[in-house]
Amino acid sequence: MKEDPGLYDYWPYENRPKITWPNGARVAFWVAPNIEFYELDPAVNPHRKAWPRPVPDISGYGTRDYGNRVGHMRMMRTLDKYGVRGSISLSTALCDHHPEIIQMCKERDWEFFSHGIYNTRYTYGMSEDQERAMIEDAVETIHKHTGQDCSGYLAPALTHSDITMDLFAEAGGIYTCDLFHDDQPTPVHVRSGKKFISVPYSLEMNDTIVYVVNKIEPRRYGEMIKANFDRLYEEGKDNGVVMCIPLHGYQVSHPHRIKAFEEALEYITGHSDVWVTTGREIAEYYIENCYDEAVADITAKGAA
């Protein structure tokens, strides 16, 4: 184990090179629906239990299954209404289990990126070959079912190894959602030296963290989203930032929650200088226009 993951250098928020998003937008805004499949009786990982209760843990399983049966369509209708294309953090086995969902996302030109095979299969304990096989399986599955190259990664159930980023970059990926250290994209060190970055995916705005971990009230979540946006929109005048709302059909789409979320979405998309986009578009734009300058600035400040 290491003291520091070694993935990025300290790089203070002030006095960075200016990011100018397309059309002069201040905030690159993206929404990341997690479309997940949890197994009722998954293979056992010795480092993490899948369910708190003995199999079948129908409460945990049913909670997640609700997202696919009920929540997904409700969320999609809401995003459609405000012209938001989702960037899907996908349990890629869902392509096999629920192709109807994949089809609806394809029709809307949503982005698909890897969130592992199942959200009940963890990276812990895997050899390098095993983790590579899991990553390649997900990348191939996304390509086979959607025609898309998988650009982004959010580790299944946020389970990582020391080489997760290295392996994903080698499999063709260009960005990770697993790091929560910044409000702007930042370069990430990978052993191949490829251009690979972190795109902010806010855990603080993540509905599961909000509802399950922090036990926030639905209307307060709406207020938090607006406050988060207001400050980023203000700061984005000087230097472009990213705002992400990660969602789950089994959390935000419940009937007592979706309205407050919708109001926040209406608020954000009602502002003129917002680039409503996807994770991949942010990453490609950043790598093309901002990456080299960022690396030079980080290097200079590190040397200073």
Partner: peptide
């Protein structure tokens, strides 16, 4: 370090649910 090879096998990875208790369907459909 490695997990048992079965950890990367997915016997129920096919259309519908990973059990036979009920059919897969979306409320809106």
């Amino acid at each position: 370090m490695a997990l048992d090879p079965s950890y990367l096998e997915y016997p129920h990875r096919s259309y519908g649910m990973d059990h036979d208790r009920y059919d897969w369907s979306m409320l809106a459909d």
